[in-house]
């Protein structure tokens, strides 16, 4: 029972923080609320037995990516309060679309045949052991392709950010 209460608290914090990300007008505050959401997801990863991914989530997402976000925000944001978005009837369309999506996905979750009850006992060995074995055997080619993708992203970011200087 304690696990369910814990899940509920973390889930509520995650949802509220995610809502605050898109509600507040200050981009820096948005970024900080996003960090809260990412932390909550990392905690849920821990409760699901994905220790390595929880650590990576905190290091890469809440650490590296959010620092990058904050750098760009402080670089671009002239300290004026952001004006409200001129939406027209786009807001109504977005709300209707989101509601439709929510109902649709909730129906899928409620009606599909999902494994119920407690989670099965994990196989012996640590989480990172299983992950490493899968990553370097079954998923070796995608792993190498991902490294090439990261290299391309680095080169692309350098070229884009350098401008026309050279």
């Amino acid at each position: 029972m304690i696990g369910l209460a814990f899940f509920t608290v973390v889930a509520i914090v995650a949802i509220v923080a995610a809502a605050m990300v898109i509600i507040v007008r200050n981009a820096v505050h948005s970024a900080l609320f996003l960090v809260v959401t990412l932390f909550c997801v990392a905690i849920l990863f821990l409760t699901l037995g994905a220790e390595f991914l929880a650590a990576v989530q905190v290091l890469v997402y809440a650490g590296a990516i959010m620092v990058l976000f904050l750098f760009v925000i402080t670089l671009l944001n002239p300290l004026q309060p952001e004006t409200p978005d001129r939406l027209g009837n786009q807001g109504a369309f977005a709300g209707a679309l989101a509601l439709l999506l929510l109902v649709e996905m909730a129906l899928v979750v409620r009606t599909n045949v999902l494994p119920t009850g407690a989670a099965p006992t994990p196989p012996p060995g640590t989480n990172i052991e299983h992950l490493g074995l899968a990553l370097y055997s079954t998923y070796l080619v995608p792993f190498e392709v991902a490294s090439v993708l990261l290299l391309v992203a680095i080169v692309g970011a350098v070229v884009l950010a350098r401008g026309r200087a050279a």
């Binding site: 029972m1 304690i2 696990g3 369910l4 814990f6 899940f7 509920t8 889930a11 409760t47 699901l48 037995g49 979750v109 409620r110 999902l114 494994p115 119920t116 009850g117 407690a118 989670a119 006992t121 994990p122 012996p124 640590t126 989480n127």
Partner: peptide, 12 residues
Amino acid sequence: PATYITTAPLSY
């Protein structure tokens, strides 16, 4: 064996 505190069902 690792112990986990998962008691929330998958649908949650």
